[in-house]
Design a protein around this nucleic acid. Sequence first.
DNA 1: ATAACTGTTCGTAATATTGCGAACAAATAT
DNA 2: ATATTTGTTCGCAATATTACGAACAGTTAT
Lengths: 94, 94
Amino acid sequence: MINDRQKKLARYAKALGHPVRVYVLQTLSLQSCCYSGDLTEILPIAKSTLSQHLKELKDAGLIQGETEAPRVKYCINKQNWEEAKELLKTFFEL
Amino acid sequence: MINDRQKKLARYAKALGHPVRVYVLQTLSLQSCCYSGDLTEILPIAKSTLSQHLKELKDAGLIQGETEAPRVKYCINKQNWEEAKELLKTFFEL
DNA sequence: ATAACTGTTCGTAATATTGCGAACAAATAT
DNA sequence: ATATTTGTTCGCAATATTACGAACAGTTAT
């Protein structure tokens, strides 16, 4: 009934469905990577809350985190990022 | 901190964050308008549930409903649809 | 007038989301 | 060895989302 592309699109859109996550993705896509601490300094939310948002973006596949002890470097997951882009592009150009 | 474009983008993305709503928008953008009954027949959800999803899309500004008694004709809200498209396009092309 | 049709609203329930602070884990610095 | 730094996880609370059926409202058919 509802196909896989539609489900995937909804999944990615859902991940984009919060201002903080939009901000994080925008930051990452501009500078490719950043430490979560950089975001904590700027964003007016508790670090635990940011951590949750980062987890959601990771679960959705849009970012990936790499431990560079004691910090964690987050980057865009390029492959899935491109997939999301393609899905949305096609969606809006029907 | 987080600007209006980011908030708007998140709002539209949130509306797109469910498979049923993606399906509805895709259907509407393909045939421009449709009656909610057409969707009820196809989608495996209760009509009250569909009504809620339609309300959310309407609240997000992506669709608009017009009563053609006893039915309701739903159409894409072109202006906001274009805005969402532009916001997402810019977002992914940073 | 009554029945049928279309869709919304209401009440309810289960689950998910958002947010915080405290506690924790792991590595580094003192 | 102890303290500091960085970030996650836990526990909690408030609110939002998703879903359903029943009841309702408005229009059209009988």
